[in-house]
Amino acid sequence: MLEIKDMRKTYGKTTALAGVNLNVKQGETVVIMGPSGCGKSTLIRCINRLTEPDSGEVLVQGRSVLQLSDEELMAFRRKVGFVFQQFHLIGRLTVLENVMFHLVLAGADRTWAKEQAAAALAKVGLHDVHARKPEELSGGQQQRVAIARALAAGPELMLWDEPTASLDPILVGEVLEVMEDLVRSTNTTMIIVTHEVSFALRVAHRIVLMDQGQIVEEGPPEVIFKAPVSEIGLKYKKLLAS
């Protein structure tokens, strides 16, 4: 479904991506792990071009994402759900508006959009907070609103950039729960960047380990964590054992 070929990105002298190749099948859940600054976010943002890669290729169902016109890119992005580490909710809109407004702006009927939004909020376990502003919610709730927003348009691909990393440890659980539910209940292709090892172990079809802008190891979780070959893999194995 998704094919990334020799993707490269540098920021001045910093190399964020140094030739990444990755194939993701339809319905597959891929978890990307790696030390801070290894290029995970850059990689995932390059898929829907929130960051423009310097070179390489992104093929989604055979179409080159990097060649899309502005309009085509917008249409493509609408089919890709993106969950940010820091929620990225629109502060001035209510919870419900946050989840529906992009549907309306894409041309959907308001009532339909509202129904979709309510359904998506229900899916993440939020019922009676529709009229609140994001700032009136807990971090976990906010992130669930953000997940609902990504879900509302019925995405074919979901990209998660460390969705629990900025949450209070006691709130992490509720978000992971929602995520796990989603992975199990839908057939949506997912690429998840996370440091939650046990979560990865449970939900990932495949784990990709990155270091210094490159993929250093990949494979099913039981293989990666039992017999890692890379330095990073060994570190994660140790982490899991402790």
């Binding site: 929130l50 609408r78 993106f82 990225h88 909710l89 629109i90 992009h102 927003r149």
Partner: peptide, 10 residues
Amino acid sequence: KEVTAGQALG
């Protein structure tokens, strides 16, 4: 954050 959210949402 809000701007990138808008971008990501198409």
